[in-house]
Every structure is written in structure tokens, then in C-alpha cells.
């Protein structure tokens, strides 16, 4: 069994030499490693490898991964500013054969979160992204039960079969603390580095349409009225409509409505 954890090392101060105070990996990336270490206990003969794209300055965070118990760590030598597709292609070259890949769902520079998506496509693996919980007990029986956050406070339960790519939020788990002796010993470990892509992402970027912000008048009326206004229910001119349909018909009804609204 092989679990790989993919980290994105970022230096937030791009105008100066790397300053370790403003560089590193995100809480989500750390949570990904913790989940991998916890899952390792559920599988027999399981290795956890941490792979990070980045310059040599990223070696320190990989040493910290070894200090907390990762089996091995590898750095793909690459420049820091690469687009998600390039990153995932470089990672995939080293991840073929991995049973499970765990990533954080954001980096400290708040990237797009697209790497896990591309990675799953590159590997031909299942994907479950933006997870807020991983049921560790389900690892013993498989498939792996995970929980996704949906809009409106809703949750989606997914059963994931391997091979798979997961991305987790930072709140999923807090990375364990490295034993002091291991932390000290890891400082002298040489991190294996392999050549990777360099360069900058393409300049052309396409952003989704965002409506301009509008100034709205202060709300009037009591709390109940306000809730009704927000939910658009109970009024004579509201758009809300309750229908009971089977799933295919419901999907068709939603699409029709969206087309009517101009989407």
C-alpha cells in the first residue's frame, strides 16, 4: 500500500530572498499529511511519501514531514510559480502506482485548488475534493467514507474506492507534533530532489464573471420579514416554488429554470 501526500511550498514574499517566516505549506497541506499518517495505521505494510514541488528552500518543510513520521520525502525541483496543470503533470510522473494521494485543498497563497482535480485525471483515479472529514474506521473495510462540504451548510457523504485523490480542508486534522529527538535528527537529512518543470505560468488568464457589488438600502421590518426577504418565500412576487419530482425530472426542471433566468 502506498499513500502519497502532495504539498505546495510557497514563499509569500516574492520580491526578496526567501524568508522562512513567510514561506511554507498550508494548514490544509499539514492536515493532508496527518490524514495519511492516520490511514497508514489502518492498512498493512503501508508507506507514506511526501512529495513537494519547489526550490531547495522547501527542503526544511520536507524534513519536518519526516520528523513527524513520513516514510520518505522527495522534492521535485521546480520554480514556485507554475500553473495547476503543469504542477499536476509533474507530480503525476512520480505518483503512478500510488493507491491513495492526499492533498491540501489550498496553499498559503490561496491558489485555485485545481491541482488535485488535474492529478486525478492524470492518474485515472477517483477524486473527492474539499473534504471536511475522513472516516478512518472505514479504511479497514473500504470503500473509504469521506464528507464534503456543500453550499448552504449541507454535507455530501462519498464512498471512495482506490486508487483515489483526496483533497482536505485544514480543519480535518491537526498535524501531530514531531518528537523532539526526531525533529533535531531530521535537520541533517538530505532530501532527495528530482528535476522538474521551471518557468512561469501563461499570462492569459480567464476569470469567471462576477457581478459588480451593489449598494442596497438598509433592511426594514422585523427579523421574520427579513428572513422571508432573504429566502424569497412567502411573498406574492417571490420566485420560490416547491415541486416534487423524481431525480431525472427534477434535474430537467432545474435546467429549464436556469435557462429561463438566462444562464
Amino acid at each position: 500500500m502506498r499513500i502519497a501526500v502532495c504539498w505546495k511550498w510557497v514563499s509569500l514574499d516574492r520580491d526578496h530572498d526567501v524568508d522562512e517566516r513567510w514561506a511554507g505549506v498550508s494548514a490544509a497541506d499539514e492536515a493532508a499529511l496527518e490524514i495519511a499518517l492516520l490511514l497508514r495505521d489502518a492498512f498493512d505494510d503501508c508507506d507514506v511519501e511526501v512529495i513537494c514541488l519547489g526550490p531547495k528552500d522547501a527542503d526544511d518543510v520536507l524534513r519536518s514531514a519526516l520528523a513527524v513520521g513520513a516514510t520518505s520525502a522527495r522534492r521535485i525541483d521546480a520554480s514556485a510559480e507554475l500553473d495547476g496543470h503543469t504542477v499536476s503533470a509533474a507530480l503525476a510522473d512520480h505518483l503512478h502506482g500510488a493507491d491513495l494521494v492526499v492533498c491540501g485543498d489550498y496553499s498559503i497563497d490561496r491558489g485555485t485548488g485545481s491541482v488535485p482535480v488535474f492529478l486525478a485525471a492524470e492518474l485515472g483515479a477517483a477524486q473527492a475534493l474539499g473534504l471536511i472529514d475522513v472516516d478512518l474506521a472505514s479504511a479497514a473495510t473500504m470503500p473509504l467514507r469521506v464528507v464534503r462540504r456543500l453550499d448552504g451548510g449541507r454535507r455530501e457523504l462519498l464512498d471512495v474506492s482506490l486508487p483515489a485523490v483526496l483533497s482536505v480542508e485544514g480543519s480535518v486534522a491537526r498535524l501531530r507534533r514531531a518528537p523532539l529527538a526526531a525533529s533535531l535528527a531530521s535537520r541533517s537529512i538530505a532530501i532527495a530532489a528530482v528535476p522538474g518543470p521551471h518557468g512561469r505560468p501563461a499570462e492569459a488568464e480567464v476569470h469567471p464573471y462576477r457581478p459588480r457589488a451593489r449598494t442596497l438600502p438598509a433592511p426594514t421590518g422585523g427579523p421574520l420579514t427579513r428572513v422571508r426577504e432573504i429566502l424569497d418565500i412567502g411573498g406574492d412576487d417571490g420566485h420560490a416554488e416547491t415541486v416534487t419530482l423524481d431525480p431525472p425530472a427534477a434535474a430537467g426542471r432545474i435546467l429549464d429554470q436556469l435557462r429561463e433566468w438566462g444562464y
Binding site: R176, R177, A178, P179, L180, A181, A182, S183
Partner: peptide, 9 residues
């Protein structure tokens, strides 16, 4: 003693 596992120095 420190707050790390096996943290005595």
C-alpha cells in the same frame, strides 16, 4: 521538559 513528545532536554 518541553511540550513535544519525548521532549526532555
Amino acid at each position: 521538559t518541553t511540550d513535544r513528545p519525548d521532549g526532555d532536554l
